[in-house]
Design a binder for these strands. Structure first.
Ligand SMILES: [Zn+2]
Ligand SMILES: [Zn+2]
Ligand SMILES: [Zn+2]
Ligand SMILES: [Zn+2]
Lengths: 132, 132
DNA sequence: TCAATTGCGTTATGCTATAACGTGTGCGAT
DNA sequence: ATCGCACACGTTATAGCATAACGCAATTGA
């Protein structure tokens, strides 16, 4: 369950994501790392694949972007769904977990004999600051 | 709230989606409509935009594809979230609604003073038939 | 030492989506 | 009637996202 030591490229990508204040696309990450020798998208995508596998980064499907996990210590992800509220003005992402939602969804899926593997729960809108 | 009369292009795209047994990408739709005079992606995307606006088609963010609404008559979408279970083997999509999940998510968002506008709930996995 | 695994770099390619321009048609206001 | 506007449409070009396929180097473990 513990995260393996990150390689150089993985560390660079992870650092960029942890310092960012909003989700980043793979190509934005690439641009930020050109000074560190990155030249091609694959260098970013390969690092992201590993970081996603380790659970320290999340992919936001609805905006084709990536964000560092907001709860790196809790290993909450192993036993529950993750949901994201994404502000369309400032880009801020709130990551949250709710076991009641989890169980409700899981029960429904079970009733359909559907074997869940990956889940995406993303709410786009405006955060408290941006809602005006 | 009633759906306007569809234009020719909108009807063609909608028909392709309703006859399909799995979600289709915009470019797959384009290929299926070349015989009907479609030549460029924009013809598909413009029709899809309208169909999405009318609520008769859904976009599946996690697989960049589109599917006809499974509950065209209920106007359930206006007052609740929609969730999808997507089989990664056969492509079958089960569309469902659950008010308890809705309310739970909405309550949480309200507590964060987050103003929700669009939501995405997609579960990928394997359907009863494909789960082997 | 040899084979298998893993990470890395590069080039090329494919898939997804939109920008920008111009045309034609219908329809209400003048 | 005709002007102005909104809307659908067609086309070309471009932007943005993601992976295939190749080869090399370092690591590991038998
Ligand atoms: Zn997380
Ligand atoms: Zn905001
Ligand atoms: Zn629907
Ligand atoms: Zn299936």
């Amino acid at each position: 369950m513990t995260t393996p030591t990150l390689t150089k490229n993985q560390s660079l990508v992870f650092d960029v994501l942890t310092k960012a204040e909003a989700p980043l696309s793979a190509y934005t990450i690439l641009d930020k790392l050109r000074d560190h020798g990155f030249r091609a998208p694959l260098q970013v995508y390969r690092a992201l694949d590993k970081l996603l596998e380790y659970g320290v980064v999340h992919r936001l499907e609805s905006i084709n972007s990536f964000v560092a996990c907001a709860h790196p210590d809790e290993n909450c992800h192993s036993h529950g769904l993750v949901a994201f509220a994404i502000c369309e003005s400032c880009g801020q992402v709130i990551e949250f977990h709710d076991h009641e939602v989890d169980h409700r969804l899981m029960d429904w899926l079970k009733s359909q004999k559907f074997k869940a593997e990956k889940s995406t729960i993303e709410i786009r809108g405006h955060c408290a600051s941006c809602a005006a």
